[in-house]
């Protein structure tokens, strides 16, 4: 039996704007096990972005209870959340979000600086390891604009994993990539999940991406409408040639 990583119970989040209040999440409960590869899917406005922000500890729910690896997230303040997410969560975004004027290696090492690893040697050693792991050895000193989209996303994944977080949270990680590179990235994520036991949560609207995961949670109108196990997940394969 896999260990429980995240336990969300009766989570609600409401946005009060100019007009009617927006009930983004209405009392949802969700458990995610350690080592799971899970997709969160739903149309726009379904609350999946809100759920992702909550899972990523970028925001706190209005009510409910949220337990992340034994830590009660509800009690953390803004800076404690920042410290917490830098240790337990790695983020990957649709448009990579690398710092443009920093090299691939500097981008990967950035979370280590914020996590307080003060030895530059140590940081660069771990940064290089991460880049090797995502297959970018030799590109350490390239700037993001000198890399292809797929390579940039690999740098972003390396950066997300450099602090050895328990969970990788990917927001439309292949949304800006062509089909070939999409396969490469999914292959990498599946490999990390399988070989290192990394929990991966992917927020996506692409059905195909969801089918690469072991479990799909579908949201609509702030509620979980379906929570299904994918019996035979697609295995991403490099196309021949």
């Amino acid at each position: 039996m896999a260990e429980n990583l995240i336990a969300l119970e009766n989570i609600s989040k409401t946005y009060y704007g100019a007009g009617e209040p927006v009930y983004a999440l209405r009392s949802i409960s969700l458990n995610i096990n350690s080592g799971e590869m899970l997709a969160i899917m739903g149309p726009s406005g379904s609350g999946k972005s809100t759920l992702m922000n909550l899972l990523g500890c970028l925001d706190k729910p209005d009510s409910g209870s949220y337990d992340f690896a034994g830590q009660d997230v509800m009690t953390l303040d803004k800076d404690q959340l920042a410290n917490f997410r830098s240790i337990v969560i790695g983020f990957v975004f649709q448009n990579f979000n690398l710092i443009g004027r920093a090299t691939a290696l500097d981008n990967v090492c950035l979370p280590l600086i914020y996590a307080g690893v003060s030895s530059r040697k140590e940081r660069e050693k771990r940064g290089r390891q991460m880049l090797r792991m995502v297959g970018l050895e030799g590109r350490e000193h390239h700037l993001p604009r000198q890399l292809s989209g797929g390579q940039q996303q690999r740098v972003a994944i390396a950066r997300a994993l450099v602090n050895e977080p328990g969970m990788l949270l990917a927001d439309e990680p292949t949304g800006a990539l062509d089909s070939k590179t999409t396969v490469e990235i999914m292959l990498l994520l599946q490999r990390l999940n399988r070989e290192q036991g990394l929990s991966v949560v992917i927020v996506t609207h692409e059905a195909d991406i969801g089918l690469h995961c072991q479990r799909i949670v579908r949201l609509n109108d702030g509620l979980i409408v379906k929570d299904e196990i994918v019996t035979e997940p697609y295995l991403a394969k490099m196309q021949a040639g």
Partner: peptide
């Protein structure tokens, strides 16, 4: 602003 968001997402505190 976006860069600040990225930095915060990967662990930068208010102080940093």
């Amino acid at each position: 602003t976006r860069e600040i968001g990225i930095r915060m997402a990967i662990g930068a505190t208010t102080r940093a």
